[in-house]
Design a protein around this nucleic acid. Structure first.
Lengths: 251, 251
DNA sequence: TCAAAAGTGTTTGGATTACACCCATGG
DNA sequence: CCATGGGTGTAATCCAAACACTTTTGA
């Protein structure tokens, strides 16, 4: 079979762009879901997304546009990356649908129901989905699991944890993001040293936080660095077979 | 826009599955290419691949089948993973074509022209492509660059370097794979200690290699471990902006 | 003055590097 | 017996975990 040869019968395949939008709120890692109003999976929750616009829209652009529609935020401020493409033949019972899935990290959105056109968008903790206690439409449980694993991995060697924080934040807030996403406690002292000592990660604003108890914390903004050197490794990063940082098939 | 709602006009989008098959031969990291016999890009080299079969074939399965066709090897023995999906609207001048690209690592194939149905398949060093001295069809230059970066990254924290070696190999052969893929010399003594001390990476066969000069080397087979702990880090893994282990957009 | 959180210092062990040195074989 | 690579030992250094301890606020 030859790539992009003319004269082939091109099978009808529908392509959608879906979003796995993660945030940290109420002490939990949460994902944006929409409730389906039509069959199939009517009434079930699913990832937001849509068919690729029939215009010549780039898939990356489509993802950014949809993210802006759902959150009301400027997509150029948000972290958005391609997660994976899901192409199992029977994942949609109606017809063959291939989904290019994108992963986004957004801060805690102040407005009650997300921001923009989020008529039906809700935030849902990922844990019950990972545990299989909540089932989503299509194969979206698997997508959520992949998205969470990618997010956990990204926090290790990039500065993207700050993408979950507001524009100004303290080291404690950042540490809580790590603790919530990874599901493990971190030593506050060592964490503080690591992130403040990582060049380009945090830029001090000079301000101090006002909170209830304890000494006020220094307030930071995100720095320009995107990679962490050295990485902040999870305790669970031990040799456990079957957990690969990238998705694998076969052996 | 709502995911998978009925009643939408589904635009016609062609989907191809392409392969970035990497190997190490003649002291260089090489990639499998085919010469295009038809327009567009007739006469130019491109990645092997093809339109998704109109059957309900899984994209992962399609990639494995194509890999077997091109190499003549059993796909269950080979490493194959999804690399990324490329969806820029004008990447194919004829019509909208979205490509789901897969990455494979194969050992040096003994048969002269690959193995199976490789009528036109050739091995080509990646370096001239990365340097821009050789231009491929479509956006395949970019795909090759992404594939190589993924491969380099994978060698750091997985045992996949051995996928480039024959079923039985010496530590030296494995080290040469690392040196060639990363393009840097490694200390043979420390490398030896690291890989032999990494549990599950190498299984001694008891045999010894017979080569021209020097002490015979112990012969190993791949072990069951897939992840490396601790990782073997490249020297170039220093904070250089713009090089992220996963593909990014926005920000 | 006490509780609570922020932040610093110090110890210890693991991993990495660089390199000295010995081992085993072919010519 | 010497060149050539295979393989081990070891000291210096860096990094991270653990935790004692000091700082700064509100109540």
């Amino acid at each position: 079979m030859q790539a992009s040869d003319g004269g082939w019968t091109i099978p009808e395949v529908a392509v959608t762009v879906d979003l796995a939008v993660l945030t940290v709120r109420s002490g939990a890692l949460q994902i944006m879901l929409i409730r389906r109003g039509v069959q199939p999976f009517r009434g079930k929750y699913a990832l937001p997304g849509g068919f690729l616009a029939s215009t010549m829209e780039d898939t990356d652009t489509a993802a950014a546009r949809e993210l802006a529609e759902e959150t009301g935020l400027d997509p150029s401020d948000l972290h958005l990356e391609q997660l994976r493409t899901y192409g199992s033949p029977y994942r949609d019972p109606r017809q063959r649908v291939i989904t290019i899935c994108y992963l986004a990290f957004v801060p805690h959105l102040p407005s009650p129901t997300a921001g923009g056109d989020a008529l039906h968008a809700v935030w849902s903790p990922v844990q019950p989905i990972l545990d299989g206690d909540v089932r989503l439409a299509f194969d979206h449980d698997q997508i959520v699991a992949d998205a969470v694993e990618r997010a956990r991995s990204k926090l290790e060697y990039t500065t993207l944890g700050a993408a979950f924080c507001p524009s100004e934040f303290t080291v404690s807030e950042l540490r809580m993001v790590y603790e919530i996403v990874w599901g493990q406690r971190l030593d506050a002292r060592n964490f503080h040293r690591k992130v403040t000592g990582s060049p380009g990660f945090l830029v001090p604003t000079g301000a101090r936080s006002r909170q209830k108890g304890g000494r006020p914390a220094a307030v930071y903004r995100r720095g320009a660095a995107e990679l962490l050197h050295p990485a902040i490794l999870r305790a669970g990063s031990r040799p456990v077979a079957g957990t690969t940082p990238h998705d694998d098939m076969s052996t």
